[in-house]
Every structure is written in C-alpha cells, then in structure tokens.
C-alpha cells in the first residue's frame, strides 16, 4: 500500500570542496563539458572562469549586466549574453574575447550551443539568431509575438525551441519553412525539453505549467501552483518532470500516456519558495534550492523525503551539476559560489 513512498532514501554524502566570493547576484553557472572548469556570470555583467586553482579569473564584462552563459560542447569556447545586446565568445585558455556577435536586440535573454555541435543560438528582444563556429549568421527569425524569454536546443540538436508571449516557436534546423508554432494564449516564460524530445514543458506567467507533445502538438495544462513556475527539470530517462512554483517540489509522471489524469508526487521540505531545480544528468538525484538558502537533494523516484540537505547564507539563485553528476555548483544572491561533491 505504501510502497516506497514516505521512506527516507539512503543518505547521500555532501561535502563542500571549493568556495569563491564574486560579490553580486549569481545569474548563471555553466560547467565545462569535462567538468573541470566553471563559468560564472554575475548580474552586474562580469563573466568569470574558475579552474579551482586560486580565485576565479575575470574574463570580461557586459555593460548593464550579464544574463546567460554556455560552453561549446568541445570545451574550446564559452559564450555569454548580456543586457548590452552582445554575445561574447571567450577563449577559456587565454581568457581573450575571441568573438563579439550582435544579437539583434537590447537584452540577450539566453545563449545556448547546439549539443554535439559548434553552432550558437541566442535570443535578444524578439529575435533568435544562430551563428556557426566562425561567427557567421546561419539563421535569424523575429517571428515572436513578444520578447523571447527562453530558448533551448532539442537534445539531438535538430531544432531550437523559443518561448514568448503566445507560446512556443520551433525553429527546425536546415528548414527554410516558417517555423512551427505551438500556440497558447498566455505568456510562456521558461521551457525544458524532455531528454527524449517527446515533450516540451513550459512555465507560465499565469502560474501553470504547459505540457506539449511535440510530434502531435497536443497539449495539457498543469495548474494549482501558487506562483509562476520558473523551475522545471526532467529526469534523464524522460518520464518524470519536477516543477517548482511553490514551497513544494512537484514530480509529474509523464510516462505512457503522459501526466494527464494522474496525481503528482509532492516533495515537501523547503520552508520557502523554491528557486532552482536540477536533476542529476545521468543519475537519480534531484537538487532543489530555495529563497532562504536551503539546498536539498532527493531521490524522488524512491522516496519523498530528502536524502541530504545543506544551508547557505542567502537565496540560492543557481545550481548546476557537472556532466558526470558528481559535483554540484551553487550560486547565491550575495555572490558566493560553492562546489560540493555528491557521493552515495
């Protein structure tokens, strides 16, 4: 009757191995593909690189603020976007700025490299641009109804999905046709592809989560959240989606026919609103963080109680797993960045 739910998972060992102070709101963190370096963007615009020998090295800055940072899959470059309307590409070895790409709008919302490729996508204002490795524009689209709020590559690299007011736009690579729209009368703020690319989940301004079956365009709405949902993370197998938008982590079973008509699993333990959710890239653990600085680790398919926890001083604004899932970087509002080793 009770199955495994309600049991505490086997304890997970969490040990802090590194910490640096960057003195401003950590707006983005990105691990190098090999997991040996960490790129850090702060809200004041600085782009820094930590290689864990001494303090992080300042690469440069975006006037007005930075917003997003990403590594090229080969580890030979990293890109940052900022409120100055520029995408800057950095050489992680020399620290030099190797390219400066005009993104087409005032603010760059997001930068993302194509998985297993060198193409770089960025959204700024209503415009999506994609450049090749040499910095030449391959694609440009301004078909969005409002400023693009988020973008993500399909896990196989075949398309870019963007969110804005009135839903999702799918920009399929190599197609000259007008991009496909998954229309929804609402403002979609953030999106997450399921790892198998079957589904896209979006967090909405109206405090719902929208759930799209990509092939058929069929959709479902998940409601009942007290706040807008900016935190979405998929389990690597693609059948479970964790959502925030409250003090409770909600886990939706999207296997089989999808989440409709099923009751989600509620993971309670945070004293205040959740700010970050991240499943381990290959493992079973889910990291969740909140506005008070609480970090919790769950094994949510096995237990509804946290497997580990740790307190930080201020709001946790970013968490990022290394690609191998063995380390976790945690960024805070006050500018502290910590790295913890996570072991079974």
């Amino acid at each position: 009757m009770f199955g495994l739910k309600g049991k505490a998972a086997a304890t997970v060992d969490v040990r802090e191995t590194w910490r640096a102070l960057l003195d401003d709101f950590i707006i983005d963190l990105a691990w190098s593909p090999s997991g040996d370096r960490l790129a850090i963007a702060t809200v004041d615009g600085r782009v820094s690189l930590a290689s864990f020998r001494g303090p992080p090295r300042l690469l440069g800055s975006h006037a007005g603020g930075a917003s997003s940072i990403a590594w090229r899959p080969d580890g030979q470059a990293l890109a940052s976007g900022g409120l100055d309307g520029w995408v800057r590409v950095w050489d992680p070895v020399t620290g030099a700025e190797s390219q400066q790409l005009a993104a087409g709008g005032d603010w760059v919302a997001k930068v993302a490299y194509r998985p297993r490729g060198g193409e770089l996508a960025a959204a700024a204002g209503k415009t999506l641009r994609i450049w090749n490795i040499a910095g030449e524009t391959l694609y440009e689209s301004a078909c969005h109804a409002s400023t693009v709020s988020d973008l993500a590559w399909n896990p196989d690299g075949s398309a870019v999905a963007t969110t804005a007011y009135l839903g999702i736009v799918l920009h399929v690579r190599g197609h000259a046709d007008p991009p496909r729209k998954l229309a929804w009368k609402g403002s979609s703020l953030t999106l997450a592809w399921s790892p198998t690319a079957r589904f896209i989940a979006t967090g909405e301004q109206d405090s719902t989560v929208h759930f799209w079956h990509v092939k058929t365009g069929k959709d479902a709405q998940m409601w009942g959240f007290p706040r807008k949902v900016l935190e979405l993370s998929w389990h690597h197998a693609g059948n479970h989606l964790a959502t925030g938008g409250s003090d409770t982590v909600v886990l939706w079973d999207c296997g089989g026919k999808g989440p409709e008509g099923r009751s989600p699993t509620m993971l309670e333990g945070h004293p205040t609103r959740i700010t970050q959710l991240a499943f381990q890239p290959q493992g079973e653990l889910l990291a969740s963080a909140d506005a008070d600085g609480t970090l919790l680790l769950w094994n949510p398919l096995r237990a509804t109680r946290p497997a580990a926890g740790r307190m930080f001083l201020t709001e946790i604004t970013r968490v990022a797993w290394t690609p191998d899932g063995k380390r976790l970087a945690i960024g805070e509002r006050a500018g502290s960045v910590a790295v913890v080793d996570v072991g079974a």
């Binding site: 003195d23 004041d44 603020g65 409002s146 400023t147 709020s149 403002s187 109206d206 509002r333």
Partner: peptide, 29 residues
C-alpha cells in the same frame, strides 16, 4: 508588451516588459 492571459479576464492583462525589466532590477546590488 501587453500580455493577456488565457481566461480573457481583463484583470489578468499585465505588462510583460515591466515584469522582465523590474525582475532584473530586483536582482541588482
């Protein structure tokens, strides 16, 4: 940028540009 929400209720019409810009402002030191 005016965002109307799905239920068509007039009170759910908000300004997307302000949400984005003020949201960023609140993060600043």
């Amino acid at each position: 940028e005016i965002f109307e929400m799905n239920n068509g209720c007039i009170c759910c019409t908000v300004r997307g540009d302000l949400i984005r810009i003020l949201g960023n402002l609140m993060k600043r030191r």
